[in-house]
Design a protein around this nucleic acid. Structure first.
Length: 577
RNA sequence: CGGGGCGUAGCGCAGCCUGGUUAGCGUGCCUGCCUUGGGAGCAGGAGGUCGUAGGUUCGAAUCCUACCGCCCCGACCA
């Protein structure tokens, strides 16, 4: 491609609307333009990167034995009613009607449609296993789209669905996809982790998220320094140290006593007032679980992990109640709520049950209780792992030390089980001719989000640093002697030679000053830059510069094309192990 | 859906409080000269329903009302 003919408009200034770096750089580099909130046009340069990612995914999915198909983006409501999700799915599902007043939605995901295909097309165990995938635009009406391509409403996704004869076979399919995903992100040249994850509203029994490590990630993951354990904090299991389960003789238990604690609405204030630590206080918070108030107990220095809470309560939605809401619903004094004789449903983090002679709210304004002992003074309706894991906790697998990192979720794989196949009657006949329900899995990759994540992870003050496999162009040639016919001929030949070698090349043949060309080349993040200018005129040499580390070397013009072609091919091959 | 902020040239902004020439600056764009290894310089030029609708007024980008759009916060807390 010739720069002079390509639609690339770069900008020096940072658009006011962009918050995160990938969004800023994608706009500045002329990769995307916003149409409206959460909706973006991919300009030629951005599309080129997107296509690179798409190709890698397609190649690896095919290698793993999956077959590509393409499903409609518009889906009829009746399929969603069959699965139960028409009512279950929230306002993220964009619903609308056609001219006949029939209900439809824009597909945020395609379980219903694929299961419909499966039940129509797959009837025998001989046809299984099958893994079908598509690369499609999805629409999710996010509450608050933000961060450009990271959380748009419309985005490009690869979604795959596997159908198996049994749970064991489904596990095999799951593992195949786990391996394929690992290869995909390795090939992209991204630093990533596969972590154990909560399976969320899609349902199912087991799932992993693939996280690109970047400071701006919306997710926090925990990894073990000693073993392979890695999990999303929403899921990461807290194990209590053995010492926590010791039994205490009844004589060491104090009586439960009410004390006056004016003006101590926070844990820290109470602890200070009563000369204890936050670890001695039971924190009681009022959550709304599907609009029902629930008291949640954690130790004073801990934080509730709402995803864990949601799971324990088997609720669709949990949120912390606003102060006045809590008061309206429970008539309990916020700041002085405690577990003893509490009139509403109560659940507790496992750790709370090991506390001895604790401090807790007395359910009376300005008063707390001391000498509170779980079991004797209160009994929660349920006890479980409810709190957020910390770096002070130990690995649930090997007891090693843990590290917390930020990550961007770019892939998610689920073992779905029979949730959809049962609801929608996707069955096959086994060897005995008996009807069996298919066991499903589903596997997504946010193609457009990977592009954003790649930039979040790979950039500097000068702009994007595209990893070679995702770069819209692998090489950019700068013609700095645009007025010199010989220089033009030389860049032209280099351009043709590199293209002949199978590389994606951008030839900057614009009549611009050198400074602009250097700046643009840096900003759009092309991994290799070849400069043909004075040094070529004088010595017959061209300069090759690596975008990532800025290292340069001079090559004899005659060797340049073959040398660079080899560099690019070697680098790609190394990632493609 | 609540709270806050912002809508003025492609982009970044000033002007608005205190209404009054032809609405301005930087950048980008066009033309010419000059320059050519890290976003040069000079000269000339094009480009605006001041988000939309209504109101107040002799007069509205400016004051009032409604609507629309965009951005940020509302996700570590008892």
């Amino acid at each position: 491609m010739r720069y002079s003919q390509m639609l690339i408009r770069t900008a020096k200034e940072v658009p006011a609307e962009a918050e995160v770096i990938s969004h800023q750089l994608l706009l500045r580099a002329g990769c995307i333009r916003k149409l409206t909130s959460g909706l973006y046009t991919y300009l030629p340069l951005g599309l080129a990167a997107l296509k690179k990612m798409e190709a890698i995914v397609r190649e690896e999915m095919n290698r793993a034995g999956a077959q590509e198909l393409l499903m409609p983006m518009v889906q009829p409501a009746d399929l969603w009613e069959e699965s139960g999700r028409w009512t279950q799915y929230g306002p993220e599902l964009l619903r609308f009607q056609d001219r006949h007043n029939r209900d439809y939605c824009l597909g945020p995901t395609h379980e219903e449609v694929i299961t419909d295909i499966a039940r129509r097309e797959l009837h025998s165990y001989r046809q299984l296993p099958v893994n079908l995938y598509q690369i499609q635009t999805k629409f999710r009406d996010e509450i608050r789209p933000r961060f450009g391509l990271m959380r748009g409403r419309e985005f490009l996704m690869k979604d795959a669905y596997s159908f198996d004869v049994s749970d064991e076979a489904a596990s095999q399919s799951y593992q195949t996809m786990h391996n394929a995903y690992t290869r995909i992100f390795q090939r992209c040249g991204l630093e990533f982790r596969a972590v154990e994850a909560d399976s969320g509203s899609i349902g199912g029994s087991f799932s992993h998220e693939f996280m690109v490590l970047a400071e701006t990630g919306e997710d926090t993951l925990v990894t073990c320094r000693e073993c392979e354990y890695a999990a999303n904090v929403e899921k990461a299991k807290v194990v209590l140290p053995d010492t926590a389960s010791k039994t205490v003789p009844a004589t060491e238990l104090n009586d439960c006593t009410k004390v006056e604690t004016p003006g101590t609405k926070t844990v820290d204030r109470v602890a200070e007032f009563l000369q204890v630590t936050a670890k001695d206080v039971i924190k009681t918070m009022i959550y709304l679980a599907d609009d029902e108030p629930v008291a949640v107990l954690v130790r004073g220095d801990r934080e509730v992990q709402s995803v864990k809470l949601k799971k324990l309560l088997d609720a669709n939605e949990v949120e912390l109640a606003e102060n006045d809401t809590a008061w309206k619903l429970t008539k309990l004094p916020v700041g002085y709520i405690g577990p003893v004789n509490i009139p509403i449903k109560m659940v507790a983090d496992q750790e709370v049950m090991t506390m001895i002679n604790a401090v807790a709210g007395a359910n009376e304004k300005g008063h707390h209780l001391t000498g509170v002992n779980p079991g004797r003074d209160f009994s929660p309706a349920a006890v479980g792992d409810l709190r957020q894991i910390t770096e002070m906790d130990c690995c649930p697998v090997c007891k090693g030390s843990l590290e917390l990192t930020e990550g961007i979720e770019v892939g998610h794989i689920f073992k779905l089980g029979t949730k959809y196949s049962e609801a929608m009657h996707a069955v096959y006949q086994d060897q005995e001719g008996k009807e069996q329900t298919m066991v499903m899995g589903c596997y997504g990759i946010g193609i457009s989000r990977v592009v954003a994540a790649a930039i979040e992870q790979n950039h500097d003050e000068n702009g994007i640093i595209f990893p070679l496999p995702l770069a819209p162009f692998q090489v950019i040639i700068l013609n700095l002697g645009i007025k010199n016919d010989e220089t033009c001929a030389a860049t032209e030949k280099l351009y043709q030679d590199l293209r002949g070698a199978g590389l994606d090349v951008l030839l900057d043949d614009r009549d611009e000053r050198p400074g602009s060309k250097f700046k643009d080349a840096d900003l759009i993040g092309i991994p290799y830059r070849i400069t043909v200018g004075k040094t070529w005129e004088k010595e017959g040499k061209v300069e090759v510069r690596t975008r990532r580390d800025g290292s340069t070397s001079l090559l004899a013009y005659e060797q340049a094309a073959s040398t660079i072609a080899t560099m690019v091919q070697d680098e790609l091959a190394a990632l493609n192990q």
